[in-house]
């Protein structure tokens, strides 16, 4: 599934709920599906700052050059939000991740979490995921240049 397709699927899933409580209950459920970060990476180095709750995020490249994210949070709603992002962005190439506009967050009614006054750090999470993608992209470019030489 492409990022766009995954986003669309999530928007459809969320459209079933018209009550905010059901929506959040679902978000909490989603948190349980999050590919959990290896305990050894649950350190300050992998902690995303700017969150009222703690969020750890780790990324690595798989054999096909796709970024695989794992994460965790001590707050269940935050965990649900990270889970959504991981669901959409994980196992995609750095370029795909950097090109994603993540409009679905708006469409499922989580836009309020994008405001800088919200302390859950959704913005920081996205930035950190893009940061990883950019770093991997840079690394592979360097490799390419070396090969061309």
């Amino acid at each position: 599934m492409t990022i766009k397709e995954q986003e669309k699927a999530i928007v459809e899933e969320f459209s079933i709920f018209d009550d905010w409580m059901d929506k959040y209950a679902y978000l909490i459920e989603l948190g349980k599906e999050l590919p959990v970060i290896d305990e050894k990476y649950k350190t300050n180095q992998y902690l995303i700052t700017g969150c009222q709750s703690r969020v750890w995020l780790f990324a690595e490249l798989d054999n096909e050059g796709k970024v695989v994210f794992t994460a965790d949070s001590d707050a269940v709603i935050t965990k649900g939000i990270v889970s959504l992002l991981v669901k959409v962005l994980s196992v995609h190439t750095p370029k795909e991740i950097l090109d994603a506009d993540l409009e679905f967050l708006d469409q499922i009614g989580l836009k309020e979490h994008l405001s800088p006054t919200r302390a859950n750090g959704l913005v920081s999470m996205i930035k950190q995921m893009q940061f990883y993608a950019r770093a991997f992209q840079l690394k592979s470019n360097v490799k390419k240049i070396k090969r061309d030489e």
Partner: peptide
């Protein structure tokens, strides 16, 4: 239970409190 989770959901119910 994380304070942030409680605050977020209370807000949805019209209740303004602070967490953190």
């Amino acid at each position: 239970v994380h304070a942030y989770d409680i605050g977020t959901l209370l807000d949805k119910m019209g209740i303004a409190i602070r967490t953190g």
